[in-house]
Write a protein that binds this DNA or RNA. Structure first.
Lengths: 202, 202
DNA sequence: GGTGGCATGTAACCGGTTACATGATTAT
DNA sequence: ATAATCATGTAACCGGTTACATGCCACC
């Protein structure tokens, strides 16, 4: 088998963007440079090699556009194995570990979720995220109580800040679920993951 | 001159912990494994080499403790150049770039701040952080309005989540300032680092 | 004699950072 | 001319990840 080594976050971010709309490396750099997406670097030294690696694995494919006047562009598109890899990533279960160590990654996954898993998938994700947060926050509060004596004032405040951040995320999950529910009533629904695949991007 | 290459975040985290209390690599690993500190790996492959690099630069110094029974421990302490480096890092100005790209690093700095810069330093930091957040949040809201049409529902919700996170941080800065003010009234004050530095009322 | 905790380390691998190189076109 | 924008790339360097290696002790 070819290298099963896992795709880094940047790879998924690129795959997610490409699955919505074919783009050149330069387009993607501009997206990273100008939008609040995750927080990836727009440096060519990160993006071009990452695109090459995705192409080597067959997750994206490129075509060179020669245009009169301007320099040639290489436009990348997600292939169907690429879309499958994106779907698998987005659909991973929410673990407590990920909540603790990589909340940003969780939100990156969510941001690509609706076109890939539909609203039902988003709702499932949010519910399991809420469950993890509901169990994690009290345990953090307990730890904070235990550590109280050992922490400096600013250390204690920083911990308070982290906890409030999690509380804000939790309250957002409630909000997001309510938005989804409202929309789903109006707009019938989008299918969930497997089976009849309709979704043509852009 | 020796390598001026900058110290990675993990290095500062270690330096910060060591400046509070001498510890072995193993102690530090346990701290990372069991407390919500930043979110560093407790892997030996990260920590031991990082400690060695700090020692090579003279920022920490180690002494080997031979104990009957247990295996020897190597206990690290911050040196005075190490404390100076920590202070310089903690005292760096808050830039919008850091707010956007490395908020976690900002909070790590804050968590080590009080013993190093005193409460006045903490207050200065919080005020400038609040200023950055106050200018950044509205610009994010604007961007969100502009992007509305291009985003999927989950993309839009993820952006909302990010903004709410920043709002929570901002409200925390207000809270933290009020806590600092309260304590400073009761407990006269902690000195800042060297000379008696008085609080700039800004 | 095996497991598990204390304790320190190394080595291969990989990807992100920084800086540099190239080159065409348009605007000043 | 030259700067700026479009556009793609490479190479050195560095540190984090993962996995492995070692060794001592306590306890069952």
């Amino acid at each position: 088998m070819k290298g099963q080594r896992d795709i880094p976050t940047l790879g998924y971010a690129l795959l997610g963007l490409l699955s919505r709309q074919p783009s050149s490396g330069y387009d993607l750099r501009k997206i990273f440079a100008t939008t609040p997406l995750g927080t990836f670097s727009d440096s060519p030294g990160a993006i071009y090699p990452a695109l090459r690696r995705l192409e080597e694995r067959g997750l994206v494919r490129s075509t060179v556009e020669e245009r009169s006047g301007l320099r040639r562009r290489k436009v990348f598109r997600a292939t169907s194995p690429g879309s499958a890899a994106l779907r698998a990533w987005v659909d991973m279960p929410v673990t407590q570990k990920e909540v603790i160590r990589d909340l940003e990654g969780l939100f990156l996954r969510f941001s690509f979720m609706e076109p890939v898993l539909g609203r039902a998938g988003c709702a499932r994700f949010l519910k399991s995220l809420a469950r993890e947060l509901e169990s994690y926050i009290p345990s953090l509060r307990e730890q904070m109580a235990l550590l109280r004596a050992k922490l400096s004032l600013s250390g204690w405040l920083a911990l308070e800040c982290g906890i409030r951040g999690y509380e804000a995320q939790l309250s957002w999950t409630r909000y997001a679920l309510s938005v989804l529910a409202r929309k789903s009533n109006r707009n019938p629904r989008r299918r969930s993951s497997s089976s009849p695949r309709r979704q043509r991007s852009s």
